[in-house]
Amino acid sequence: MRIKKAGRLLLIFFIIAAITAGAWWWRQRKALNFVRYEEFGIDMPVNYTMHGIDVSKFQKEINWDAVQQMQVGKIRISFVFIKATEGITRQDAAFKRNWKKAGEAGLVRGAYHFFYSTRDPVKQAINFKNVVQLTHGDLPPVLDIEVHNNQPPAVIRSTARIWLEELEKAYGVKPIIYTNLRFYNTYLGDEFNDYPLWIAHYYQKQRPRVDRQWVFWQHSDIGRVNGIKTIVDFNVFRGDSAALMKLCLP
């Protein structure tokens, strides 16, 4: 009798799990509404209200007032991620200007570091801290981790965690992890599920196929914006303006 009862409870558990997984899958598969905006040069997921870009020195000199003032329909640029550092010594040549001008234009700013698991993570954290002064209203620091350099997942995870913990101590907030879908699943996994995720997944009309919540989605790398002469990456934030400000440094 006890065995039968245990079997029924186990069956109920699996049914509930299957229903929960099915509901999650349906929410992920539910079609988004994309609208083609010739001014931006790409299809935009209009289900989201907060749109942004990310830039580096490769976007050359940017007219940030033109970026902030551009509006097509209900779409406008609300936030920007700016490359600050790379490895243990490199600093993006355009960071200081981009950081200052984007802030003066009234955009919500975030700074990111391009990470190498083959370099000392503490020295990489110091490189970032020496360059970036985050204040109230800025987004948390970002770990851009997308190259493996032939390192095993265990090494990538351990070095990344050191950088993340160093930056959390420095700024008092959990850093954001930026990566692509394949890299996250292969090298990071669920060990970093407590960090906000910025996921890259291009040119498709469904939400990113990642088995956890994401905060930012980089959905295209060929967008156009007034004030920028080159193509640029486009992102959306999963929330409204109030939620975006809640994510920022207090």
Rank of each mutant, 00 (worst) to 15 (best):
R2F: 06
K4P: 00
K5G: 00
G7S: 05
L9R: 01
L9F: 09
L10Y: 06
L11M: 03
F14K: 04
A21S: 14
W24V: 08
R29Y: 10
V35F: 13
V35S: 13
R36N: 13
R36M: 05
Y37C: 08
E38Y: 03
E39S: 13
F40D: 10
F40L: 11
I42F: 13
I42L: 15
D43M: 11
V46A: 01
N47M: 11
M50H: 08
D54S: 09
K57V: 10
K57T: 11
K57A: 14
K60D: 13
I62A: 02
N63F: 06
W64Q: 09
A66D: 15
Q68A: 15
V72W: 13
K74R: 12
R76S: 14
S78C: 07
F79N: 08
F81W: 15
K83W: 00
A84N: 10
T85D: 10
G87A: 07
I88F: 08
I88S: 10
Q91D: 00
D92G: 02
D92W: 07
A93I: 08
R97S: 14
N98S: 03
K101C: 04
A102M: 05
A102P: 13
G103V: 01
G103Q: 13
G103E: 07
G103T: 08
G110L: 04
A111E: 00
Y112D: 01
D120T: 05
Q124L: 01
I126Q: 12
F128S: 01
T135M: 10
T135L: 04
G137D: 12
D138V: 10
L143D: 02
L143I: 13
D144V: 08
E146C: 05
N150P: 04
N150I: 01
Q151P: 10
I156H: 05
I156F: 02
S158D: 10
T159E: 12
I162W: 06
I162R: 06
I162S: 03
E165H: 06
A170V: 07
Y171M: 11
K174I: 01
P175D: 02
I176A: 04
I177D: 04
R182L: 15
F183I: 09
L188P: 07
F192Y: 09
N193V: 09
N193S: 12
N193K: 11
P196Y: 10
P196Q: 09
A200C: 11
H201M: 14
H201K: 15
K205L: 12
K205P: 13
Q206N: 11
R207Y: 05
R209P: 09
V210A: 04
V210I: 15
D211G: 12
Q213K: 07
W217I: 07
W217N: 06
Q218C: 14
G223E: 09
R224H: 13
N226V: 00
N226G: 00
K229W: 07
T230S: 13
R238F: 12
R238I: 07
D240C: 02
D240R: 06
A242N: 10
A243E: 15
L247F: 10
